[in-house]
Design a protein around this nucleic acid. Structure first.
Lengths: 222, 222
DNA sequence: CAGGATCCACGTGTGGATCCTA
DNA sequence: TAGGATCCACACGTGGATCCTG
C-alpha cells in the first residue's frame, strides 16, 4: 500500500478500502497527527488522502497519479451526500492565454477524476469524519460542452483585458473566485489597452450543485 | 543605525564605520551567531553586512537600497587587497531576451555599487576576518563599453540558441559561469531550431582581475 | 448560502556568494 | 588558478482546500 497504484482499478480499490473509516482511525494507524482544526490547515485532508492512496508527487504541477492520468479530489459532504463546498480546479491564467479548451488546464485536470466524498459537516470533529465511497469520473460529452462554454466565456473576458469584470455569478457549473493568500495578493495581467497591470489571482471552481449531481448519479449506479 | 540610510553619503558613512572591525566583533555586538564555516552558508557574510547597513529588502528582486539605487557587494580579498573570488552579478536570461544593454539586468545592477572589501583568506577564521574601507563606484564610459561588449557577445549566442557553447573563458571582465544548486539543476532555454530545451542555469560574474583594479584605484584615491 | 477571503505545505527560482579539483 | 560545481535563505507561485460574513 506504500507504492503508487499501478492501474486505475487498483487505485479505485484502494480508495474503496478506505470507505467507512474515520480520519482519526486512518491517521492513528499511520501514526500521523491530526491538526486541531482545518482553519489553519485547509488542505490537510486532501494531502492526507493523497499519501494514503500512494500519490507520488508531493506538490508537483502534475496530476496526482501521472501514470494513470487521474486527479484526486476529496469532496466534503453532509450526511445526506450534499457537497458543503465548491471544488477548486485550477488557477485562471491571466497572461498568455492559448485560447483553446482542449489545451486548457481545466480540461486536462477534469479529464479523469477520482472523487472521494467525506462526511465533513463542521459540527463533526475532524477525527470522527467518515470516508465515503469513491468513484472514477470523466465528463460526458454533454457535461464537457457546458464546461467548455463556461470556460470560454471566462477566457474571452480575460483575452479582452476585462479581468476586473469577472464574477463568481457567471458560469453554469464552472465559476471563477479569488484564489490567493489574501485580498492584497496581486498577480500580473493584461488590461484592455494591452498594458500590464496587477490584479487579484483567481481560480476555477466547480459549483457544489454540480458535484452533488455527480455524486447522486454515482451512488445510484452502485 | 537600524533604519535604512537616507542618502548615499549616509550609506557610505555607515559602511566606513564598519572598517577595521572583525566580523566576530560586529556579530557579538548584535548578538548574532556566526556559522562555523561558510562552506554550508556561502552567502552569510553578504547578508550579515546587508543587515548591518540597514538594507530593507530581505531577498527581494531589487537593489539592496532601492531608494538610493545602490547595489551592495562584499568583496573577499587577501591582506594585500587582491580579490579571492569573482563577483556574482545576475542570472543570464535564457528566454525572452530583450537584447538591449541599457535594458539589461547587468547594466542596472552595476550602475551604482557599494563595494566593501573584507580580508577573507581562507586560513583566517571567520570571526577574525576584518572589514575594509568601502567605496561607491559607477562604471566609467570606457568600462561600460567593455561590459557592454562582453554582455552582447553572450546574449548574441543565447539569442542564436547556442547556449551550450557558452564558456567562462569568454569575456574580458564579465564572464559566464554556472549558477545553480547543482549540475543537475535545469532551466528552460531555446535551442538553435527554436525548440524549447533544458540547460544548466548560468550567471554573469565579474572577473577578480577587474574588481582588483577597481579596488586599487579606489585605495589610491583615498 | 454563496461570493469573496483566506490558510498551510512545498517546489522553484533568485539573491547572497564560496567551494573544489584538475 | 580559475572554471565548473555547489550551498543556504527566503520570496513567490501553485496545489491542497475551507473559512466567514453580509
Amino acid at each position: 500500500m506504500t507504492g503508487a497504484p499501478r492501474s486505475r482499478d487498483e487505485l479505485l480499490a484502494r480508495a474503496r478500502d478506505l470507505a467507512g473509516y474515520t480520519l482519526g482511525e486512518l491517521a492513528d494507524r499511520r501514526g500521523i497527527p491530526l491538526p486541531a482544526s482545518l482553519r489553519r490547515d485547509k488542505g490537510w485532508v486532501g494531502q492526507f488522502i493523497e499519501t494514503l492512496l500512494g500519490a507520488s508527487s508531493g506538490s508537483l504541477p502534475q496530476p496526482d497519479f501521472p501514470e494513470l492520468g487521474v486527479e484526486l479530489k476529496t469532496l466534503p459532504v453532509t450526511r445526506q451526500g450534499k457537497p458543503l463546498e465548491s471544488t477548486y480546479v485550477s488557477v485562471v491564467p491571466l497572461t498568455g492565454t492559448s485560447g483553446h479548451w482542449r489545451d486548457s488546464i481545466v480540461c486536462h485536470k477534469l479529464a479523469r477524476v477520482l472523487w472521494l466524498p467525506i462526511v465533513a459537516e463542521r459540527q463533526i470533529p475532524l477525527p470522527e469524519r467518515i470516508i465515503g465511497t469513491g468513484f472514477l469520473w470523466s465528463p460526458t460529452p454533454d457535461i464537457e460542452a457546458i464546461l467548455r462554454a463556461d470556460w470560454e466565456q471566462v477566457m474571452e473576458r480575460v483575452a479582452r483585458g476585462e479581468v476586473e469584470s469577472l464574477s463568481a455569478r457567471q458560469g453554469e457549473i464552472l465559476q471563477v473566485r479569488p484564489k490567493a493568500a489574501s485580498a492584497s495578493a496581486l498577480t500580473e495581467t493584461v488590461g484592455s489597452d494591452g498594458e500590464t497591470c496587477l490584479t487579484l489571482p483567481r481560480g476555477f471552481y466547480l459549483r457544489p450543485e454540480f458535484t452533488g449531481h455527480l455524486l447522486q448519479q454515482a451512488m445510484s449506479a452502485l
